[in-house]
């Protein structure tokens, strides 16, 4: 018997009684202005963000939000945003290298304006089925391992910026 056979046999021998699949609870959230809710949480988790104004370019808004460091920022597309936790979903198909997500000192994620959901319940269903790697990113890298003092820029990004792009939000 291989280890695989042994482990699977031991599990089946344990004869755990059937338990039904969990049903997804209904989230009680205010859905009136998801972008405002998202941006509020994003600030709490240490990120910055804004909705692109008509006629404004992404680099313009980024330099407005980040100042001089905006020019060094790595800009990646995000698929959608999650209002409850300030997270954006980025898929590895949309970036040149996976490592870029954590190697970038300053990360800007551009998300279509219409692509926002209230909670993770909707978000997990939007994860692409064929994805090879994807991230929910909520704010910059952080640590509180030294006496629980919150420090941003622990090992990954120091700055995390989310831009909602109205132009790509159509359709």
């Amino acid at each position: 018997m291989t280890a695989r056979d042994d482990v699977l046999a031991a599990i089946r021998a344990a004869d755990v009684p059937a338990a039904p699949a969990a049903s997804v609870p209904t989230a009680i959230v205010d859905r009136t202005d998801l972008h405002a809710a998202f941006l509020r949480v994003l600030t709490v988790v240490g990120g910055v963000g804004a909705v692109l104004s008509p006629g404004q370019s992404v680099p313009q808004l980024v330099s407005e939000l980040l100042g001089a460091i905006g020019a060094q920022a790595v800009i990646v597309p995000g698929r959608f945003a999650v209002a409850e936790n300030g997270a954006v979903y980025v898929d590895s198909d949309d970036v040149t290298a996976r490592i870029a997500i954590v190697l970038a000192e300053h990360l800007v994620v551009v998300v279509p304006h219409a692509a926002i959901v209230p909670t993770m319940h909707e978000a997990v269903r939007l994860m692409p089925a064929e994805s090879r790697c994807g991230w929910f990113l909520s704010g910059p890298s952080k640590t509180a391992d030294i006496e629980q003092s919150l420090v941003f820029g622990a090992q990954g990004s120091r700055t995390h910026c989310v831009v909602f792009d109205i132009a790509t939000g159509v359709g």
Partner: peptide
Amino acid sequence: GVLLRLLARSGTGQPVTAYTTHVT
């Protein structure tokens, strides 16, 4: 989705961790 809503809130009070990686 359920697990991720529970995990960080219970651990550190964050709405979710800064990085949640799903690699296949």
